[in-house]
């Protein structure tokens, strides 16, 4: 890995994003609209809104960055730029970290806007700090990026790539403890939820919701999610083959 190449790659990915204002608009506006929807749905149940909106602040960036990254990486493969890059001094990690950091930054902007709206406009109430919520959202986004980089290797077309969303993201959302508390699930479902990274991300958010100060569980959960990011990146690196048929 080289700082120069990594830096240039981050700038290049962000420039691509900047040339697509509609995508930037949607990245910022869509979470806000969905939060508004939740706000009106739970108009007379502010406690439920607090619980659901908090989890959503962490789930949006994960899902969106997973999709955006799968498509971006698939494009690198199908347009020949990936093969071209692999004939240059660029290392695989420069590319993978480049995506992780560039989209992580985009997610930080997205999460900050969404959190600002949730707290100020919709009156979200958490015992812990907003900054922790944003931090968890960004780590989740990077998890989405890492899984997207890995999954894009198994898609040949964009139609296939979007199908990985229901495969990778939806089960994690269903089992993360938002709909049914994880301890109340059937044993085998809880066991599955125990090995899904989003479960820990959501637990971390719930810790922020319930405790004024960061708890040990929160840091442990964040560590687990970060570990999953590293594993997904290693797997993604293994799918990046310099030589292809």
């Amino acid at each position: 890995m080289s700082p120069r190449i990594l830096g240039a790659t981050i700038v290049r990915i962000l420039r691509q994003l900047l040339h697509d204002p509609r995508t930037i608009g949607m990245l910022v506006v869509v979470p806000a609209l969905l939060l508004a929807l939740l706000y009106f749905m739970y108009d007379d149940q502010p406690m439920v809104f607090d619980r659901v909106a908090l989890v959503m602040l962490g789930v949006f960036p994960f899902v969106i960055m997973f999709l955006v990254t799968s498509i971006a990486m698939l494009r690198e493969r199908t347009t020949g730029t990936l093969e071209r890059l692999l004939t240059t001094p660029l290392g695989k990690l420069d590319l993978l970290f480049g995506y992780g950091i560039a989209f992580g930054l985009a997610a930080a902007v997205q999460a900050s806007v969404a959190a600002a709206l949730a707290y100020w406009l919709f009156g979200l109430d958490t015992a812990g700090s907003t900054w922790l919520v944003i931090l968890i959202a960004v780590v989740n986004a990077v998890l989405g990026v890492a899984l997207g980089l890995f999954c894009s290797a198994f898609a040949r077309t964009e139609f296939q790539a979007v199908q990985f969303m229901p495969v990778v993201a939806v089960p994690q959302i269903l089992l993360c403890g938002l709909f049914v508390a994880r301890e109340q699930m059937a044993g085998w479902l809880e066991a599955i939820s125990n090995v899904l990274p989003l479960s820990y991300a959501v637990e971390a958010l719930q810790q922020v919701g319930a405790n004024a100060n960061p708890t040990a569980t929160l840091w442990r959960d964040l560590g687990i999610v970060a570990g999953c990011v590293v594993v997904a990146l290693i797997l993604a690196a293994a799918t990046l083959r310099r030589r292809t048929a």
């Binding site: 190449i5 700038v11 040339h19 347009t79 020949g80 730029t81 093969e83 071209r84 001094p89």
Partner: peptide
Amino acid sequence: VGYLTQAPSVYADLTVRENARYFAALYG
């Protein structure tokens, strides 16, 4: 080594200059 692929392999959503600067940076 410089390599020109048969089908152009530059980023369609970047300008010519942005593409050139990126590849320049890769080679230092």
